[in-house]
């Protein structure tokens, strides 16, 4: 053990400290991300936006079947999905702006949008 400690150089310590600080910073940044106000649900060519203030439980159809999405306590998640791997369900709750869950097999995408979604439409 002492041999190991003796072999550690200043550069190694600095490198470890640098990465620890980086991870801590990223973690702080992640948990401090602003929370969103709306949930955008995109299914085949359609997009629907729900206010996170109001709880909902709805099913949306995709090519494989019905995906159930819930909004509760200003957070959203996919509760049920007909896809095989269920990654979308394991993703859990999202509530920070730009957090997104995509279920590729059932072609459903849900994302959190802030009050400051830049705009609703474009004038050109």
């Amino acid at each position: 053990m002492s041999k190991f400690i003796n072999s550690v150089k200043l550069g190694d310590v600095l490198t470890i400290l640098f990465f620890m600080a980086l991870v801590t910073l990223l973690f702080i940044k992640l948990i401090n991300l602003p929370t969103g106000e709306f949930l955008e649900i995109e299914t085949n060519n359609e997009s629907t936006i729900f206010n996170l203030e109001h709880d909902i439980q709805k099913k949306f159809s995709g090519p494989l079947g019905l995906t159930e999405i819930i909004i509760h306590n200003k957070k959203a998640r996919i509760k049920e999905s007909p896809c095989n791997k269920k990654y979308c369900i394991h993703h859990g709750w999202i509530n920070k702006i730009n957090e997104t869950i995509v279920c590729i097999p059932n072609e459903i995408r849900i994302s959190i949008i802030g009050k400051n979604k830049p705009y609703d439409s474009t004038n050109y």
Partner: peptide, 27 residues
């Protein structure tokens, strides 16, 4: 209750079509 609230009126529904040689987008 959640189901009933899901039918409530807080949502934006978007529909699109191609008319006048351009995209028509209704929210």
């Amino acid at each position: 209750l959640l189901f009933l609230m899901g039918c409530s009126d807080n949502q934006i529904t978007q529909n699109k079509d191609y008319i006048f040689g351009t995209i028509v987008d209704i929210k």
